[in-house]
């Protein structure tokens, strides 16, 4: 049965998975070009000053900030809007499978695809930065981008939560809370701005449970 759920989620997400992977490759290629251009244009010494002092690299890889966010949002929408349109979730709820298992499997598989995209981007970034900079810079850049990846994960789970919620008023409230939570992860524009990262890791880790709450409300016939 879990294979069947994986199959259904794959049907919904497959084109998005391929397009996002393509965009990741293009974005990484763009970064290589930008990094080389700045080194060439500024010279190694000035570039080094900018990279260390002005966090230039984070500005060159702005797509890393946006891609996980967009991917989380798109995956959440593609998976759960078709389920909630015309109350199609009723079909899923009638399947002979435990409802909690069904919901957790749906978000679990969706997150698995999101995580694959995030890891692809993360290791691609590591490769790109390591082509021109030493280990200390690589570490700083990668650590500084972690909140963005976490932000993408949070957007995914909370998008699923909001869409599965049957009441529009609750959706609105959750939307405001989501914005506040996620925005915290995207404030930093310099290195090492990841204070409280582990707290947010814990928050994201429990987020899949929110879909159980929304799913339960839908099942009870809440309007």
């Amino acid at each position: 049965m879990l294979k069947a759920i994986l199959y259904k989620e794959w049907i919904k997400l497959r084109w998005a998975v391929i397009v996002i992977a393509g965009l990741t490759v293009l974005s990484l290629a763009y970064s290589i070009g930008m990094i080389n251009y700045y080194i060439e244009f500024q010279g190694a010494f000035t570039n080094w000053m900018y990279v260390i002092g002005k966090s230039l690299l984070l500005k060159n890889i702005v797509f890393v900030k946006v891609l996980p966010l967009i991917t989380g949002l798109i995956f959440g929408l593609l998976q759960f809007v078709p389920e909630m349109t015309r109350n199609r979730m009723r079909l899923s709820y009638h399947l002979p499978i435990n409802e909690k298992k069904l919901l957790l499997a749906s978000v679990g598989f969706g997150y698995m695809f999101l995580l694959a995209e995030i890891l692809f981007l993360f290791f691609g970034l590591w490769l790109v930065v390591s082509m021109s900079y030493p280990a200390e810079v690589i570490q700083k850049v990668l650590m500084s981008t972690l909140p963005w990846f976490l932000g993408g994960s949070a957007v995914y789970f909370l998008t699923a939560f909001i869409i599965l919620e049957p009441s529009w008023i609750y959706r609105l409230i959750y939307g405001v809370v989501t914005y506040g939570l996620v925005e915290l992860n995207f404030r930093a524009s310099t290195y090492d701005q990841y204070v409280g990262l582990w707290v947010f890791v814990l928050i994201v880790a429990v987020m899949p449970l929110t879909v159980l709450f929304a799913g339960h409300r839908f099942r009870r016939g809440t309007k």
Partner: peptide, 27 residues
């Protein structure tokens, strides 16, 4: 229990083959 929902609700993002493939694994 076989349920037919109002409006002949179906997973309309699936094809004829995909939907059979999906449901067959549950029964």
């Amino acid at each position: 229990i076989g349920l037919l929902h109002e409006g002949h609700l179906a997973y309309d993002f699936m094809t004829i083959r995909q939907v059979e493939n999906f449901y067959s694994r549950f029964f």
